[in-house]
Amino acid sequence: MSVQPAVAAELPTPAEFGRAFTALEKEIGKVVVGHRDALRQILIAFFAGGHVLIEGVPGIGKTLIVRSLGEALDLSFSRVQFTIDLMPADVTGTRILEETESGRRSMVFVPGPLFTHVMLADEINRSTPKTQSALLEAMQELQVTIAGTTHLLPSPFFVLATLNPIEMEGTYPLPEAQLDRFLFKVPLAYPAVDEIREIVRETTGALTPKIQPVFDVEPAVRVNQLRRLVREVIVAPEIEGYVARLVRESIPDVTENERVKSYVSFGSSPRGAQALVLGAKVVALLNGRVNVAFSDVEAIAPVALSHRLVLNFAAETEGVTPRSIVDHLIEVARKWQR
């Protein structure tokens, strides 16, 4: 049976995707020292059309990464520092009464910082759940409805939220349902000694590296083309089945896995499977393939599934982390691959 190729209108090739991705990594790497894996995962989520939650202590370059991404893509960038008194309208925008020159008054919508291509929601867990929900709804729907009027967010729309794992007092941890809306949760580790030395050298000198845009013209259109290419990557039914089993295996109510049953309270939702496949598609393109392999799924599973697992008290007391559970699931799932 032959398959007729669809008309590939304005669709970049996998090679072009790889070149763009590599260029982005290189440009951002000019100012972000280290964190190469984290940066790669952030870019994967970006091209997969998802949002990323970055967890790390202050001062390790979270904001710098996001700002550098915006600059490299030559896309609009905004930053919102979430605090306890931040209101939803402060994020989404609000209607104000405006008087025209003729004296007429009307309500005019003033877009908030949400209306941008790349948004940094810094320390999102410090705002109230109401504000968090307003942001997360926009992330999911890519639109904001205010006073009965729906406002579409610009495309591409990418949210990078950060979580500060310390100073938890007075914070509002994100509910699991809201955590689920982030494609990846990327942990930022402390830089190594060499990386710190390079950070010092790069940021304390007279010359500050300048990021050059990767796309010369219409960067947003180009990014969207690359995102469409990602969606076109072919997934075999075996891969889909593997992903589905992997996700279902994380649910303690249905799995036979003793480790999962012992330490996991709630497993991954189907969004986890979506995140796995979308992220694996990007990884496949980065590996020069137009098909997803099992190894692509394995590579992306830790950042796609860890924040979707809710561990129980036993896991906390025994020091079991979501990442270790995911690693265990990947090991178990290897036998399903063949």
Binding site: V3, P5, A6, V7, N291
Partner: peptide
């Protein structure tokens, strides 16, 4: 890396694939 598996699956599914030539 599941190239052949994907090729066979895609051929049997008969779906319209933009990346089929690749």
């Amino acid at each position: 890396d599941e190239r052949l598996l994907t090729l066979v699956s895609a051929a049997e599914s008969g779906r319209e694939l933009r990346l089929w030539p690749e």
